Simulated scan of single mutants.
Amino acid sequence: MKVLAAMSGGVDSAVAAARAVDAGHEVVGVHLALSRQPGTLRTGARGCCTIEDSMDAQRVAGQLGIPYYVWDFSERFKADVVDDFIAEYTAGRTPNPCMRCNERIKFAALLDKAIALGFDAVATGHYATISTDAAGNRELHRAASWAKDQSYVLGVLTAEQLAHAMFPLGATPSKAEVRAEAAERGFLLHAKPDSHDICFIPDGDTRGWLADKVGAEPGAILDRSGAVLGTHEGAAAFTVGQRKGLNIGFPADDGKPRFVLEVRPKTNEVVVGPREALAIAEIAGERYSWAGLAPTEVEFACEVQIRAHADPVPATARVLDGEVVVTPDEPLDGVAPGQTAVIYVGTRVLGQFTIDRTVSAVPVAAGA
């Protein structure tokens, strides 16, 4: 097959590209330039897509003897990921930019261009696996190592995208094994630290970054009954479940810490309350997709995962009136509108939806 290897400059994508070459595929490496003003060097383990990363990817491609290109996707990335991130926070939601990047850049814009150029598949360094059922339908499954599993952030992939996706690291037992293989191959990046946080906010200061982009206006901090407890410097900087940075100035009546329960962008208000009020009995969303065949039942048992590193929770899902509704067997903790809920059946990723609304498991009367 003719395979386009997406090479970020990290150890995972380097080894994935190498394995694609070893498998006998005709491989071409490509690095995505996602910023018009990339930093020259990385700051510790933060950020990615820097000039240094591009050079690391190019060095590996040279060692593998494959063609290497840099594709400028910065304009598309800004519109589909960065601007979306700002819009979601402005609307009081908590977005996951990695999901949007996989959905709209790596497996939409990149894959579309690859297919147009005659490639059969795009290979990435994600830890996930693809299997085929008896009828020839492709399915997305968790990686062999659950500790490194990245199927959650791939939950946005459609059946058509799975047909052209390749994950050479999916069956690898551990990241240590990947680093060891990179060292054996002579890749200088074998000990390079993993990137983390949001790639376009490399210093990790999301609140400061948002304040610079959308501005910050003082507003009220309320309890669940509507009583004003204090003020904040901008609602967009808060997210559901947040504890730090409230600066209310006096403790709750029971002496327990308060948490952000709701962000109201239209009125610029932040609602806070006790931890138990974060318990969510139901989540639902209209923006959903299926990673392969759609479920045939209107209601079915499943597991739901609401964060990349969260544990899956047994639940019941219903598809009704253009909306996916999930009721967990036990309440979920600290769910925010805008987060992505990924639905699993066993190890298979069935699909995903963006959470539009939640139903609290604790009524207001139980404590403001």
Rank of each mutant, 00 (worst) to 15 (best):
A6H: 06
M7K: 10
A14V: 11
V15N: 13
V15R: 14
R19M: 03
G24C: 08
H25S: 13
H25I: 11
G29F: 04
H31L: 08
L34S: 01
R36K: 01
R36I: 00
L41V: 09
G44E: 13
G44K: 15
C49S: 15
Q58N: 08
G65N: 10
Y68M: 06
V70H: 12
D72W: 05
F73S: 03
S74G: 07
S74H: 12
R76P: 05
F77T: 11
K78L: 15
V81M: 03
G92R: 01
P97D: 05
R104N: 06
R104C: 01
L110V: 01
K113C: 05
L117D: 11
A121C: 04
G125F: 02
G125R: 02
H126F: 06
R138P: 07
E139C: 14
L154D: 00
A159Y: 10
L162M: 09
K175E: 14
V178R: 04
R185I: 13
R185L: 15
L188P: 06
L188M: 03
K192N: 06
K192D: 04
P193E: 03
S195H: 12
T206K: 13
R207P: 07
G208R: 04
K213Y: 08
A227F: 10
E233W: 11
A235N: 08
V240W: 11
R243W: 00
G245W: 04
D253N: 08
D253Y: 09
L261A: 00
E262G: 09
E269S: 09
V270C: 08
P274E: 12
A279E: 12
A281G: 12
E299H: 03
E303S: 14
Q305D: 14
H309G: 04
A310P: 07
P312M: 00
V313Y: 10
P314D: 14
T316P: 04
A317G: 15
L320Y: 12
L320G: 06
D321H: 12
V324H: 00
V325E: 13
D329S: 14
E330V: 15
P331W: 09
A336D: 01
I343A: 03
V349P: 01
F353Q: 01
S360M: 02
V364I: 04
A365K: 10
A366W: 14
G367Y: 01
